[in-house]
Structures are given as C-alpha cells and as structure tokens.
Design a protein around this nucleic acid. Structure first.
Lengths: 333, 333
DNA sequence: GTGAAAGCGCTAACAG
DNA sequence: CTGTTAGCGCTTTCAC
C-alpha cells in the first residue's frame, strides 16, 4: 500500500541500505546508482517514514514548545521566533498551551518527552521547584524563553527585567512625578514580583520617594484590568500622576480609563508600558514602552537549543538580550 | 539506559503484552497483575515511547496544523481553538507557519505527512489547484479552517463571508451613505475577492449606488495600510463617508488616519470592520464589526477532523458557522 | 561502493 | 487472562 524503502530498493535493484544512504545524502554512493535510486523514489512517490526513522535513529527532528497561551500576542510573537529558527534548522515544532498551570506544564513535558522530542523550549511565568527539577533531569535539553529560573542553572534567554523596569520608573521620576502607580500581572509570576516590582521600589527609594502600597496593583494583565485600575486609583485622595504598566494592554486600559473621564495623556497623566507590541503604535497617544523583544527571545532560545542538541560548546547558558525604551507620546520629552 | 516495556515486563514477571495492555488500559488484565505492573512502571519511571508505538500502531496521535502566521492574532486565535480541541481528544499538534506561500504549504504538507500525522488542519487564504489536489489525495484527512475551497469537496469550516459582508455594507447604506469605500487585504485571497468584494458590489448595486473603482483598495491587511488608505481616499474629489474594512487593523488605521486629521468617527465618517478581535474594544470609538469567530472555527475544524479520523459519519463536510454584527461606536445607531 | 542483518520499542494477532 | 511471535519502516554496524 504505502511505499517503503524496501519497495524502492527492489525496484532499483539495490539494497535498502543504499536507498537509505541516498535518502540521507550519504556520499558513499556511486553517482549512477544514486541517480537510479532517485528516479525510482520519484516514480514511486516514496516518502520516508519519519516515525520509523525516529525509532531507528533516536532522533525525531521535532522539538516541543510549551507556552502559556498562543492566543496572547506576547507568546505568539515568541512562538514565531521559535518556529522560524526551528524551520531554519530543519526541526518541526509540537506546540502546546499550558495556561500557566503547573499541572498542565508537567503533563505536557511528560507527553512531549514520550513523543521523543529532541529538545524543548518552554515559557513559564513561574518556574516552580518541581518544574525546575523535571527540567534538570529531562533526557533532552530544555531551554527557557522569556522566563526566569532563579537558580540560573537551566539554559534561558531573557532581558534584564530589573534594569529595564528601573529605567522606566526613572524616566517617570525624571519627569517630576512623585506619585507613580505600579501595575502588573500576578505577583506570583517571578518577573512581576522579583524584577518589575522590585525595580519600582528601588527606583522610588533611590529618589527618596515614599512607597505607597495603594499605588501598587497586581491583577490580570488585561485591558479591562487597566481600566479598572484607573478607576480605583483615580479616586484616591492623592491619585497618581504617572503609571508604570506591565503590559501594553494594561497601559491602554489606563489611558482609555483616563481619557473616557476627560483626562489628557500625557498632559494630565503619563504612562509607560512594558512590552512594545504592535499595539503600542495603534493607540492615541502612542505608547512609550520598554521594548520586550519576544520574537528575538524565542529565536535565540531556539538557536541555543539547537546548539545544545548538537552538543556544541555554549559560551553562556543564561543569555540576556539588550533592551531599550521606545519613546513615543504617552510620556513627555 | 532508558527503560523499555521489556524492562518492566521482566521486573513484573509478566510478558510485554501484558504491560502493553495495562499501559493501554485494556480491560483484559487481572486487577492484581495490573497493580503489580503499575507499581513497577512507577518504580522504574517507565515512559512509553510514542515513536515506537506510532510505528507499530500506525497512529501518532498528533495532527499537523498549517497556518499563515502565528504572530497574527487572527490565526493565533484559531490555533488556540484547534489546540484546545486537539488536547481534549488527546492529540498533540505540530504547528507550522506557511506565510501564505504555496511552496511552503506544499513542503509543510509533505513533511507532516512524512511525520505520519493522523490528520491536518490547514488555513490557507488561497487554495490553489495544486493544493487542492494534494489535499484530495493525502493519505490522511485534511480539513480547512477559515479557508475556502471553491470546489467544496474538501472538509472545511467557515462562516458565510458573502452574506456577512453584504449585511455590513447594507448597514452603512441604511445609514444613508452613498460613498462607501471598500478596503481589504490582497484580492488574490479568495475570501477577499469572491466574497467580501463581491458582496460589496452586490449590495451597492442592489441599492442603486454606482460602483466607483477608486473607492476599492486592496493592500496588505495592516494598520499602516489603513492609514495610507485614508490618506489617499480623503484627498479624492468626492471622498467616501463610510468604510468597510476587511480587518480590525485596517479599520483602526482608517480611524486614526481620520482622527489625526481632525475628523470625528462616527460623526464625519463611519467605519465597520470584519474581524471583531479584542482590538475592537481597545480603540476609541470602539469598532462596530462583523464577528469572525476564529476560535470557534478552529475548534470546530479540529472537532470535524477527529470525527473523520475516527471514521464517524459526518453529516456535512462543509460547515458554515453563524455570524453576527457586533454593534459598537464606529457606526451610528 | 554496496549488501546483510540486527535491532529501535511497541502493538497486534493468535494461541492457549 | 496471559504469553509468543511477528512485524511496523528505517538506521546502522559490520563484512565484503
């Protein structure tokens, strides 16, 4: 029924070993027999069975990708970076959503390992001990993308979240603000608590600005949360005049909340976000934002993974990409 | 090194067949031996090798997903729908981007078939004859999601693009507009030319409004194209007063183009889009839009695929999901 | 430069 | 209820 390597061997009057050689580009084949085999392959429409190949060679040329949610542009962007590089190196990708649920993450790791992927790229906002342990003991390499593992002993690629956030807050401070609100997704996520929030506090302290817990809001990282946050913050006795938002959606929510109440951005309030997705240009005023290079992070993570899978020497398992602040109109100057 | 079914068979003093049975949940195993086997599996940390299983059973429980670009929210949304249902039915997904390039699409189909996927969900804005032929002759079922194949003989799930577009144009007409612009992505894409544009022309004709080719713009479906389109259209002698935009980004581009030039939406111009992504709520004015239920399309397509893979009886291979118009503020009334 | 043969780890009859 | 035995389609020594 389906044509196998054996069929083409028979038709070409050679052994399966020879067919295998030409299929795999092995040079030890006389040009004339290679040609003959190729013809038969074409004629029979032979397509190598990657599963059989995988079983025999113990390599599947597919890598697993576990991300929180592909419908979230942040992760979709990273996924594209991962896939592009994977394709470049001839790997395919098994993609799965974890919804940032540890149990799912563990199950997914398990089923991917069962499928004999050659490696895994993972994005997780909270690398728990259990996860960390699994990653350390997995039979194939795993690299984290845009996700921090505090022990720093698993390969990963990120930007310097603390420094980037610090700079963002500083920008607001340098514009004269004393009442700066901090808005982020769940503090259960390492990046939010250990980096963004920590940087916020540090920057304020360094500028001798008192930290007001009322100005710190941790919610879902969505547009609606941004609107809500504005509602609650704007009714404070001493409301904030500037906002640091952990994502573009959050920032847009704040801006719209303010605008819907007649405020002007950036004249009345200023806001800086942390993401710089294409959304940032699609609002008025356009968002000033810390650029979080998700595509690059995905691409570099995948590239790193290929190196590890090839057992190449890695200079540095923990890579930190450069960041920058994209100045637009939601912050003055 | 890695523990196999044979190892657990030996340790549990049973045959591999029995281990296979318990692993696969076959009921023909005495509870006591099942328990024994399960213990050994746990102790040895045995993990079934899906590749070997796939080779032996000719089923991989993975399906291929070919989409134009995962970093585009349209497709990402659909991908999420596909993946959710795939997970529900215990399938994994091999995801790849085609960039809407026929050659890549063909290559991807080939490598996925080589990897022995059990089925494929494909999104393609232009199902060429070649593609159609490949799909018809593939060894596993393929279903199209949000993509039309005009011959209608390959399984697919869509909405009624013509009718939906017609209604959108009608809404604009009923608001008194005579100069209505049509904006879409490439007319090389079936949906744009054969449905959206066709509906536009029909609706205008039915209302005895003359069709002005100057008002028809087909460009990339991006925010910037929307802005550009506004620039060129607004300088016409008799500029349009209403716009039908093929996507949310296009619509937002038009709106911002207009607003940046002091126009008010919807007082000066009205615009309706075709998509209704979450972006629609994240602009001012909020977008009135034809709802294109991408998640559902993906989910239903995947569900359909599972049915075909299971050789269940399918009522209708070509499914049309209902659509609706979400009224917000970019169109009056 | 080419072939023979032994698996890779598992499923699936077929016996018993 | 359980074991035996063939493969699944290909890669990979090891000979020749």
């Amino acid at each position: 029924m389906t044509v196998t390597i054996y069929d083409v061997a028979r038709e070409a009057n050679v052994s399966m070993a020879t067919v295998s050689r030409v299929v795999n580009g092995n040079q030890n084949v006389k040009p004339s027999t290679r040609k003959k085999v190729l013809e038969v392959i074409e004629r029979l429409e032979y397509r190598p069975n990657a599963v059989a190949r995988g079983l025999a060679s113990k390599k599947t040329t597919t890598v697993g990708v576990i991300i929180p949610d592909i419908s979230n542009s942040i992760y979709a962007e990273a996924a594209r970076g991962i896939e592009d590089i994977a394709t470049m190196y001839n790997y395919n990708i098994i993609l799965a959503n974890s919804d940032q649920n540890e149990e799912k993450e563990i199950t997914l790791l398990d089923t991917m390992l069962g499928k004999q992927v050659d490696g895994i790229v993972m994005m997780s906002d909270a690398v728990t001990d259990k996860l960390h342990h699994l990653m350390k003991h997995a039979p194939v390499p795993i690299v984290l993308a845009g996700s921090v593992d505090e022990s720093n002993d698993v390969p990963s690629v990120n930007i310097d979240y603390f420094q980037a956030s610090y700079e963002a807050i500083q920008l607001l401070i340098s514009n004269g603000h004393k009442r700066i609100a901090f808005l982020s997704g769940p503090l259960a996520y390492t990046i939010n608590s250990k980096y963004k929030l920590a940087a916020y506090k540090k920057a304020l302290q360094d500028a001798n600005i008192e930290i007001d817990e009322q100005l710190i809001i941790s919610e879902e990282s969505s547009y609606d949360s941004g609107i809500e946050a504005w509602e609650t913050l704007s009714t404070l006795d001493n409301p904030p005049t500037a906002f640091f938002a952990g994502s573009d959606e959050l920032a847009i929510g704040i801006i719209h909340g303010a605008q819907d109440h007649g405020k002007n951005v950036p004249d009345d309030i200023e806001v800086i976000s942390f993401e710089n997705s294409k959304l940032a240009r699609m609002v008025r005023p356009r968002l000033t934002s810390v650029a979080f290079p998700l595509y690059d992070i995905g691409a570099v993570a995948m590239r790193l993974l290929t190196k590890i899978m090839n057992k190449e020497n890695i200079e540095e398992k923990v890579v930190i990409l450069p960041h920058r602040i994209e100045s637009r109109q939601s912050v003055k100057g």
